[in-house]
Design a protein around this nucleic acid. Structure first.
Lengths: 344, 344
DNA sequence: ATGAAAGCGCTAACAG
DNA sequence: CTGTTAGCGCTTTCAT
């Protein structure tokens, strides 16, 4: 059995012949270059259509010295944040006749090793990074050294590359205000690790909400997690061990919030009556847990669109992209899902 | 700012010069071809090393008329089954100096449209399909029409392409036997949709276990779902409405099992005392829900390795790959996680 | 076992 | 505005 792909049947040369023009004219049409008369353009397009011509990517890459590829580097394929971003970015690339190729950073892989591997092989025209990698100094440096175009989503770290910002402060503040409004008085925070600078707006929002309600900041109520389910569990154990435990927990991501819920359910503590729980990310798990988890949904598609636009050129959203607060049963008795869009 | 990638600095020509051999010899070394004397080979390798030479993929593609690319087509990036397979396959490709590129099938996209899109652009040397796409007749036909090499994981549908089989019957039987052994007497099944042929071994296992225990097959206890959380919920509502409800539920995947758990928790039915629940897939949600869900873990890496081996050549696992039963708290009081490997 | 020459299909640079 | 001419970096004949 011969598995080799057949040689391409129709080339740019055939198209040029059929249309009765030079090769370069066809090439110009293909690449949307200026200086082609409409009539000529139409003739070429028709020839392309009739012949069923499809450009050969490898040949274009070689001649133009561009790959028409964007590398999307991720380190956790189970992260719904990363995978949703991947899908959205992939759709956006397709729209521009580009291709998104996924690179997975192995747990023990070095930043330079990864960049070397990616650049040596596919030679992408650009690289897209999402949290936590978008704030990884080593990785950013390795990419900067190569001079490859870069876009970093939800990055707070200053440095090389374009940045697609997040605005988590307001929505976090709104979330904590919702907790207070529903009668909770002692709100704990399972904070992100110090290293995850991207998520610190969530801490800021928490503090602002307490300040606005003229409530003191209890340092015992702020426990640091590391974004894992397990860390959410242990943080909650610790909060429950306090002389005066909180009556609500705001976790900086959903995984930790789910950990909190598991501990509460194990101990028979009622959610949300005895303890309300809220997360951040609108992960699939937040919808399937019982009671469903109150959380925050990022404007994923918009962010991905902006990211690709910054890499490839083109208009970027003017309105700042804002996250939505999703209120569900883990903070509201007799819940009906409510989506609260943040003010622009 | 100039973002264009610089021209490659060192070519095969430079290597040949440095090693004092012809270009073809270098090429032969790179492609692991026969008929190269060890001494010559070493000389070439050293030159490559010293020069830091990296072959240009686009040039190789163009000249050899192969892409060194495998397309991995998925339709649901939130499916842990699909993403785990993706990671494993990606690692396996890397080992062989191939690249795995992810294609996402849009919900409204036609099979022929997708295949056209994928083949016209990247021209992969092979395509890898996982469930449910690995049993999609239209898609398989469209690929067959192109003659592109194909491997289908967990496929039951006969047809074009290599198949990496699953063996879910035995482990399903073992799972139901575990339910019976723990004292449950009325085991319900939330079955996969008829269309998902791949999952019907799970139904077979269920039936075999009941038969082995000389228990009758109650048709009321078999409710069909569609693999979604919502269908797990409605199936469970129905089971609870029965005059004599079951005391255990085996759902054909984790999403439906989570739906079952949500309904039970909402009604205050104890898990596992009043109702045991088991799923299938070992999804992230199965580990974070409370109580943790008893489920089945597929030998994902082995399957991915075999899939790529079937596409690219090379040894395939001789021992059949078998799934493992993971016993957790949703079926066992006072649980300690237990992994039971199926007999080979 | 190794080398020389001829492209792969396309675009860049230059003419016209 | 359009055509001509050279390659891009590699692999493939086909000699030797």
């Amino acid at each position: 059995m011969d598995w080799s792909t057949e040689r391409i049947l129709v080339t740019i040369y055939d198209v040029a012949n059929k249309a009765g023009v030079g090769m370069k004219t066809v090439s110009r049409v293909l690449n949307d270059e200026a200086h082609v008369r409409p009539a000529m353009r139409a003739r070429v397009l028709q020839a392309i259509e009739e012949l069923g011509y499809r450009p050969n990517l490898a040949a274009r890459q070689l001649a133009a010295n561009r790959s028409f590829l964007i590398s999307f580097i991720m380190n956790d394929v189970t992260s719904s944040y990363q995978t949703s971003m991947l899908v959205a970015a992939s759709a956006e690339c397709r729209r521009r006749n580009y291709h998104l190729v996924v690179e997975i950073m192995e747990p023990d892989e070095s930043a330079t090793g990864l960049v070397e591997r990616v650049m040596a092989n596919l030679r992408p025209d650009g690289i897209m990074l999402v949290p936590p990698l978008s704030n990884d100094a080593d990785l950013i440096q390795a990419i900067a050294n190569r001079g490859t175009k870069l876009v970093r989503v939800a990055a707070t770290l200053q440095g090389y590359g374009h940045v697609v910002p997040v605005r988590d402060t307001e929505v976090s503040q709104k979330l904590v205000a919702h907790l207070l409004a529903s009668g909770k008085k002692r709100i704990a925070l399972i904070a992100p690790p110090y290293a995850k600078a991207a998520a610190h707006e969530r801490v800021t929002g928490y503090k602002l909400a307490l300040a606005a309600a003229e409530l003191p900041l209890e340092s015992d109520y702020i426990v640091q997690g590391d974004f894992t389910f397990a860390s959410g569990k242990s943080a909650t154990e610790r909060l429950l061990g306090l002389p005066q435990p909180p009556d609500a927990i705001f976790a900086a991501n959903d995984a930790m919030a789910l950990g909190a819920m598991a501990v509460l359910q194990q101990r028979g503590i009622g959610i949300p009556e005895d303890m309300a729980v809220a997360g951040f990310d609108d992960s699939p798990g937040s919808r399937t847990v019982y009671p469903p988890l109150t959380t925050v949904r990022q404007p994923i598609s918009g962010m991905a669109r902006d990211a690709i636009a910054k890499l490839l050129g083109g208009p970027v959203d003017q309105e700042p992209l804002v996250p939505e607060l999703i209120i569900r049963g883990s903070t509201q008795v007799g819940f009906v899902e409510t989506v609260i869009a943040q003010d622009k």
